[in-house]
Computed example of a mutant assay.
Amino acid sequence: MSERRRGAKAKQESVKRPGLIRRLCLMLVLVSALAWLTPMMVQEALVIWDRPVQEVTIEGPFKWVAREQIANLIGEQINTGFWALDIAALQHSIEQDAWVDRVSIRRKWPDRLVIEIEEQKPIARWGSTGYVNVRGELIESDAAMYQLSGLPTLVAAPENLEKMLQYYQTIAELMYARDLRLASIEVDARGSWTVSLADGVAIRFGRQSLQTRIRRFAKVFDVELRSHWANVSAVDVRYNNGIAVSWRDAG
């Protein structure tokens, strides 16, 4: 190799070494900084993880659910950190209240929980042991609430609930359209249907052809009974082609 080439190569190596040294120094500084910052970052992460919940907002109509009871239940379960809190477990606990239909829980940075409660919407009483909601599901609560005292009562074996609800809507709409207030619908052990009204009139539909008999009652009421309804005591629709009417004692 000529002297000129050896000199050029040595010059190139001398130029490269300072750049390499600078990069190594920079990497060393970065590694040192990271090693110094990592414990602080971990500590800060732990502080954030363990930050207690400072504020809980509970939203809902609270017609049937007791706000204080829900607040106490929540207070017993938010003693963990903001992020460590088991949202699913808290939601499940709140939903154990029979009058709670759905629960939504959101974390709101930095330390707030927002809990939205949707209550059940009862449409009728189920015997003396509960209520029925708008989806036809049982609300297992025997609480006697004054605000719900005007709801009609449904009486039947549990296995007849679905069929009861199918006809309940039809019967309720028919009575409402004629200014007749429904008090109860009962299906006895033999499967015989009786509708009782708030004015004391009992309408017996029997076990068979229920839809046909309901329509027959509506037609006879509209044509014959409406103007005399104050004198009616009971109506029996358990006939193939007609009905029987019992009248109140004029005396």
Rank of each mutant, 00 (worst) to 15 (best):
R181W: 11
D236Q: 07
A33R: 04
V15Y: 12
A218Y: 04
A183M: 07
V100D: 02
R125G: 03
E3N: 12
V201W: 03
H92L: 04
E59T: 03
R216K: 02
I74S: 05
K121I: 03
P110G: 05
S196A: 04
A202V: 07
A45S: 12
G7L: 12
R190N: 06
S192Y: 11
A66S: 10
R6C: 13
R112C: 03
F82S: 00
G206N: 01
L154S: 13
R22H: 10
A202S: 07
M145C: 15
R181I: 11
W99T: 01
I203S: 00
A88G: 07
E59F: 01
Q120F: 00
M41H: 05
A218D: 05
Y131C: 05
V53I: 15
E140I: 15
L197C: 02
S128T: 13
Q69F: 01
L26W: 09
V134Y: 14
R248G: 06
R102I: 01
R5V: 08
L113T: 01
Y168V: 05
R67W: 06
L161E: 04
R207S: 11
L225C: 06
R135D: 14
S227I: 10
S192F: 11
L73I: 07
S32E: 09
A234G: 09
V47F: 11
R22Y: 09
W193L: 03
E224W: 01
Y167G: 13
L165W: 14
V53L: 11
L154F: 13
Q54G: 15
L225Y: 06
E76F: 02
Q91M: 04
F82D: 00
L165P: 10
L46W: 15
W36D: 04
E224D: 01
R190Y: 08
L24C: 14
M40R: 14
I139G: 10
I214D: 00
A172N: 11
G7R: 12
G191P: 01
